[in-house]
Design a protein around this nucleic acid. Sequence first.
DNA 1: GTCACATCTGCGGGTCCCCGCAATAGAACC
DNA 2: GGTTCTATTGCGGGGACCCGCAGATGTGAC
Lengths: 240, 240
Amino acid sequence: MNLLITEDDPLHRAFLKTAVENALPECDQVFEAENGAAAVEIVKSETIDGIFMDLQMPKSNGVDAAKEIWRCFPEMRILFWSNYADEAYVRGVARIVPSGAVYGYLLKSASEDRLAFAARGIFVQDQCIIDREVRGVQQRSENTLEGLTDAEFEVLTDISLGMTDKAISARRKISTRGVQSRLKHLYEKLGLNRSVTHSDIGPVFNSRTRALTVALSRGLLNVDGLASYEMELEDWLAKK
Amino acid sequence: MNLLITEDDPLHRAFLKTAVENALPECDQVFEAENGAAAVEIVKSETIDGIFMDLQMPKSNGVDAAKEIWRCFPEMRILFWSNYADEAYVRGVARIVPSGAVYGYLLKSASEDRLAFAARGIFVQDQCIIDREVRGVQQRSENTLEGLTDAEFEVLTDISLGMTDKAISARRKISTRGVQSRLKHLYEKLGLNRSVTHSDIGPVFNSRTRALTVALSRGLLNVDGLASYEMELEDWLAKK
DNA sequence: GTCACATCTGCGGGTCCCCGCAATAGAACC
DNA sequence: GGTTCTATTGCGGGGACCCGCAGATGTGAC
């Protein structure tokens, strides 16, 4: 069995390598990549059976790399390995995992035991292993009450790029009034009207920008994700 | 000599500890803290001569902890130790370092040699050691042409919190027109009018939110910083 | 079928934001 | 004092955004 470790931090990479060698003695060879692009190359040139994938990496984050890898090898087993259980990452991963693929999501704070267990589960027994904490975020985001619907999340990413209502309506093929309607629901779910938004000088917050602040601090969005969304937007602008 | 290592990641903490023991044999004791609040406590209860301070930590980031420590011990020597040379961090540190204090700023990508050199420079010879890359960011931000003035940066933090023009004008004690004037300069420096902002359906971007996207992706702002700014804003709202 | 529920749409008006223009105030320098 | 440069202010207008209301459309349950 050949595994690939994709992780930019050399310290974590070394730790992961020895941990893997201990947990999976049946593993023949461990490849290493320090960013997403390098990982894609290795997967294409070598025969790889499973991947450890860091999500936070400078340039070419883990989600984009995994997307490209799954596009070529839909049954590749990938264990995501992240500092945070940010909803942006969880959603990002959930959006690209092919149906039937085996994958896992583990936090870096997990003990070495948990890491070994998850690795065996995924790479040997073909089982999906999702960290409990991550699972919590996943369920919360599926819950329509406090979670965002896909439409609301979509409009959130659009305003996070700085798009105008009119541009969003063109991109998503709904009326501008429809955009505003989605925004209104988004603002409600983010609790923009619940917090102290008024003082003696009138409203303190601008909903549109305040929504971004709240979404960022709650981990609904993150800066890595913005770069990906930006690229999608450029594609759309180009063919428009 | 007693040193304190403040770093949330156990792997990095252990690495730093052995590196310090090698580089500074005259060091008697090495304390460890895994977040900013714990660091402040240790500094107050033990006699500490110098601190390694990680900037990215979940809850209570390094800048706030250093601020509190320097408030009590203005001559404390602190070596900041960060993943990124984000302008937000560089500015954040520069804003709180007391005049005459000895400090350093090193990137985590630095080699162990550089780390040892910086540690000896700061804790033994009382010299400020700033990573070349960080120094570059510092100078760029001091350059009025491509860097932001303090006024522009201030208004950027305010809109990043989602404040309205009127609220900003009350907080900063200038007219709303003054706020808009600062914003206009900010937009120019961020290059919002240079990029492709128009298409056949009219303007694609809303300046206010687009400014946030650009500032975040350039590292002028970061999410850790938002939390600090938010607290300052709450203080102001409370006493208003 | 129809009832309930969610989503999208058009209209209208109130507010906020962006900005050009011109005048003013202050700082730095000769 | 005079000059120049930068930051701020007031005015005014055009556009973008937020939202309540009412009507249309679509979907799933019974």
